[in-house]
C-alpha cells in the first residue's frame, strides 16, 4: 500500500508541472538557437570584414607555449620576475609579450639561449598601453609597489568616463601586444590630488602566483600584404627556344619583361620575409 502511494505520487502528482517546465525549456532552447544563429551570422560577417579590411585577428597571432621553471630568486632579483624554459633560440626575444588565456602576464626582460626572464605585469617598472573596454578611456597601466595584486592606471583625464568594473584591454599602441588582450578590471576611480589626472586602480586578471604555463606571442610583420604577390614572370613569359642561327633571343621591347630580366628582382611588389614592401631585392 505504501509503495503504491509512493508510486502514485512519483508517477502522477509530482509530474504535474513537468509539462509546463518542458514547454518553458523548449522556449529557452528556441531562443538559444536563434541567438546562436545570430552569433554565427555576426561571426561570419566579422570574418568577411576582417578579410576586407585586412585586419589581423587576435587569435591568429602566432604563439608558442612555455613552462614556468623558476620564480623570483636570489639577491639580484630586484624585480617581479619569473623564468620560463624558452629562450631566444626558441623565439623568446627581449620584449616578447607573454599572455595566458585569461590575459596579459608580462613581457620578456632578458633572454638566454633556452631560458628567459619575464617581467610581470604587477612590477612597478612594467608599462603597458591600455584602453577601457566600454568607455574606451586610454591610459598606461603599471604595477604597484605597495600591493602585489594591484595595478595603477596612469594618465587618465579628469573628464574620462571610466567606471569601476570596466575591463582594461591592450590598445595595441605599444607595437608588441596585439590589441584587445584583457589586462585587468578597474576597482576604483578617484579624483587625483593636485593632479590633472584621475587616480585609477585595477586588479590583474591573472593570478601570477599560480602560473605554470604561459603563451609567448611571436612578433609579426605589418600584417597581410596589401596586394597579391605578382606571379613569377618566368611563368608568364616562358623562355623562348634559341633561334635557328644559335643567337639568344632579343630582349622584348615592352617594359615588363625587360624589368624582369634586367633587374634581377622578379617580384618587386611581393613582400619580403617580414611582410614589408619596398625593401626586398637589391
Amino acid at each position: 500500500m505504501k509503495d503504491q502511494c509512493a508510486a502514485y505520487w512519483r508517477d502522477y502528482l509530482a509530474l504535474i508541472d513537468v509539462a509546463e517546465e518542458n514547454e518553458r525549456l523548449r522556449d529557452d532552447l528556441r531562443r538559444a538557437r536563434n541567438y546562436a544563429n545570430l552569433v554565427a551570422e555576426d561571426r561570419a560577417e566579422l570574418e568577411r570584414l576582417r578579410k576586407l579590411l585586412q585586419l589581423e585577428a587576435l587569435h591568429e597571432r602566432p604563439a608558442f607555449a612555455a613552462r614556468v621553471i623558476a620564480w623570483r630568486f636570489g639577491p639580484q632579483a630586484a624585480h617581479n620576475t619569473f623564468t620560463v624554459n624558452k629562450g631566444y633560440l626558441d623565439g623568446a626575444i627581449v620584449g616578447t609579450p607573454v599572455v595566458t588565456n585569461s590575459g596579459v602576464v608580462g613581457r620578456v626582460l632578458r633572454a638566454a639561449p633556452h631560458a628567459a626572464t619575464v617581467l610581470m605585469l604587477t612590477d612597478p617598472g612594467f608599462r603597458l598601453a591600455v584602453v577601457s573596454q566600454q568607455s574606451r578611456t586610454p591610459g598606461i597601466v603599471t604595477g604597484s609597489s605597495g600591493e602585489a595584486r594591484r595595478l595603477e592606471l596612469a594618465y587618465v583625464a579628469q573628464n574620462a568616463q571610466i567606471v569601476p568594473g570596466e575591463v582594461l584591454i591592450t590598445s595595441g599602441l605599444d607595437g608588441a601586444f596585439p590589441k584587445g588582450v584583457p589586462v585587468g578590471i578597474v576597482t576604483s576611480v578617484t579624483p587625483g590630488n593636485e593632479s590633472l589626472f584621475l587616480q585609477v586602480h585595477a586588479q590583474p586578471l591573472i593570478d601570477h602566483e599560480r602560473l605554470e604555463e604561459v603563451l609567448m606571442l611571436r612578433r609579426t610583420g605589418s600584417g597581410p600584404p596589401l596586394l597579391d604577390p605578382l606571379p613569377d614572370p618566368s611563368e608568364m613569359f616562358p623562355p623562348q627556344p634559341p633561334s635557328e642561327n644559335g643567337q639568344e633571343p632579343a630582349p622584348s621591347t615592352d617594359g615588363e619583361p625587360a624589368v624582369a630580366q634586367h633587374n634581377g628582382t622578379t617580384r618587386q611588389n611581393a613582400p619580403d620575409a617580414d611582410g614589408a614592401f619596398g625593401r626586398s631585392g637589391p
Partner: peptide
C-alpha cells in the same frame, strides 16, 4: 654564476656583491 643567472639586474651586480 648562480646569482647572475637567476637575477634580473644588469650583469655585474653579483660580481660587486
Amino acid at each position: 654564476l648562480i646569482q647572475e643567472g637567476s637575477g634580473s639586474l644588469a650583469f655585474g651586480s653579483a660580481l660587486l656583491w
